[in-house]
Amino acid sequence: MRISVQEAAFDAGAEANAFTAGLTGAGAVVTFTGIVRDNGGRLAAMEIEHYPGMTERAIGAMVDEATQRWALADALVIHRHGRLEANAPIMMVATASAHRADAFAAAEFLMDYLKSRAPFWKKEIGADGAEWVAAKDEDEAALGRW
C-alpha cells in the first residue's frame, strides 16, 4: 500500500505500470485519475490546500478500511496539493485484486471517501477571480452506499 500527498506532478501511466509490475497473485488492476477540468477554458488554475498530518492519516484510515472490506493485493493513492494548471492530473487511485469486482468496488469506495473525508480544499482561479469550490450534497450522499 502506498499513499503519497505531494505537490509535484506525476505520470499516471508510469505510476500504473510500476504499481502493476510490483504485484503478485493479482488478476485485476483498476486505476482512476482525476484531472483539473478547465470549465470550457474559464479556469486558469486550481489551488488545493490541505491539512498536513491529518491528510495522510485520513487517507491511511480509508485504505485500511478498504483492505478490510475487499481482498486487495495492493492499493495506491496519490493526491496533489498546491497550484495545479488546467488539465493536470490531481489525484490517482489504483487497486489490485484477484478478480475485478473487488478492485472496482475498492477504487470507488476510496474515491467517494477522498472527495469528502480527506482534508483537501479546492479553489478555482479564473479570469474573473478566485472561488472556493463548494462541497456537493451528492458527494456526501455517495458515502451512504458504503
Partner: peptide, 9 residues
Amino acid sequence: AFFPPMTGG
C-alpha cells in the same frame, strides 16, 4: 482545526 466541508478527489 476548523474548516469547510472537504473537497478532495
